[in-house]
Simulated assay, not measured.
Amino acid sequence: MSLIPTVLDSIAKVRQTREQQIIQGKITGLVPTMGAIHQGHLSLIETALKDCDFVYVSIFVNPSQFSPTEDLDRYPRTLEADLEKIQKLNTLDNIFVFVPTVSDIYPNGIPLQVSAQTGAFVQVIGLSEQLEGSTRPHFFRGVATVVSKFFNIVSPNFAYFGQKDIQQCIVIKKLVSDLFFNLQIKIVPTARDPVDGLALSSRNVYLTPKQRKHAPAVYRGLHKANTLFEHKKSASRSELIKCVLNSVEKEGSEHFQFDYICVSDKSSLLELDHVNESGAIISCAWKMGTTRLIDNIVLGAQI
C-alpha cells in the first residue's frame, strides 16, 4: 500500500489514470474540495469509498467563485496537511488527489472581475440568484463552471457533496440533469461537531473562542424548527424562523449578523409562506465578526 495518496498534478495524468480504470469497468467517485480538509470532507471521501473502486479528491481553490471583495487570498491553502489527513484513511491505493494549477483550469486566466473574464463559463439560471446568490451574485457561476470542468476531466460515476452547502447541491443536480452529464450526484449529511452540533467548515478556524462558543445557537434553532415541523407536520414561515431567532436571542443576538434566514421549496428554492407535509429547506447565512457561516436543515424527506 502507498504511504501517501497518489497526487496527480495535471489533467493529462488524471485522464491517463482514468482511461485504464474505465477499460477495467471500475466505479469511480469524485469529491471536489477547495482544500483545508476537515472531518466533513473526510466523511465525503469515506462515503465515496464505500460506493466506489476508486475515489478522486480534487483540491483547488477556485478563483471564479470569489468576487474582488472576498477572501480569495485569505482562504487557507494547506496541501501538505490535507494529504496527511487523507493518508489516515488507510485505503490510499484507492484514492487519487487531483491538484491542478489555476492555469490548468483557466487557460485564459481568471481575473476576479467578471467583466474582464474570457472563455467558457456555466450558469444555472433560476437556482443561483437567491440565498447565497443574493449576496454573492457570481458565486454559482464559478461553482458550476469549475464542477463542469472536473466532471469532464475525471468522468466519475458519482460525485459527492455535503448538505451544508445545500443550494450548491441543488444547483449541481440541476446542472447534471440539464447538461446530460453521465453521473449521479450523492448528497451526504452535514458533518457536525459531536458536542455542540456546529457544522464543520474550513472557515471555523477564523472564529475567536467567544464566537465559537456562540455559533452553535443557529443550529439549535434549526433543530427546534425541525422538531416543530415533525410534531405538527406543517408550519408557517414565521413560526419556523422564530425558532431560529429565539435560539439566537438566548445566546445574544448582538453576536450574529444575518444575511438571510429563508424557508425554501426543495426543488425551486422559491420562498414559502407555509410548509406542508412535502417539507422545505431552512437556510441561514450569518457573520460573526468578519467570518461568514452557513447552515441549513431539511424538513421532511431529504433531497
Rank of each mutant, 00 (worst) to 15 (best):
S2K: 14
A199P: 01
K210T: 13
T290N: 14
K224A: 15
A116D: 12
R292C: 07
F150I: 07
D178W: 02
R18K: 14
I23S: 14
S234R: 14
C169V: 09
T47W: 02
E230M: 10
G109C: 11
L207S: 11
R212I: 08
N108K: 07
L269R: 00
L175R: 04
K242Q: 15
S267P: 05
T28K: 06
T78M: 11
K210A: 14
R220Q: 15
E46S: 14
K173G: 04
G289V: 10
P194V: 07
D51P: 00
D259P: 01
F151Q: 03
V14W: 05
K88N: 14
Q167T: 05
D273W: 00
N157Y: 05
E132W: 00
N152C: 02
P63G: 10
I170F: 01
Y56H: 07
S267H: 13
F140H: 02
R15P: 13
H223N: 13
A225P: 00
S58Y: 03
E254T: 07
R74S: 15
V154G: 06
Y56F: 13
C52K: 01
A144T: 06
K250T: 12
T6G: 01
G133C: 01
Q302K: 14
D104L: 02
A225F: 06
T17P: 00
N246G: 11
T118K: 13
L269D: 00
L245K: 14
I22P: 05
A280I: 10
A12E: 15
A235H: 03
Q21T: 03
D265H: 15
L92E: 00
K213E: 15
S177Y: 11
I110D: 12
I125Y: 00
G279A: 06
G221R: 11
Q211I: 06
I185P: 14
A12L: 09
I45D: 04
T227Q: 14
H138V: 09
V195D: 09
V263G: 08
K250E: 15
Y260M: 04
S115C: 09
P216D: 09
G252Y: 10
E70K: 10
S67K: 01
V298E: 08
P63T: 04
I22H: 09
R220C: 09
L8R: 06
V205P: 06
S67R: 02
G252I: 08
D265E: 04
R212Q: 13
P68T: 09
F60H: 03
D259F: 11
C243S: 12
F258A: 06
S234G: 07
T101P: 03
L299C: 10
A217I: 08
V147S: 04
N152G: 00
T135V: 13
P209D: 05
V114W: 04
L127S: 02
F140E: 00
G40V: 05
L112V: 09
T28F: 09
F140I: 01
A215R: 02
S264H: 03
L44N: 05
P32K: 09
L112K: 10
P194D: 04
T227K: 10
G133Q: 00
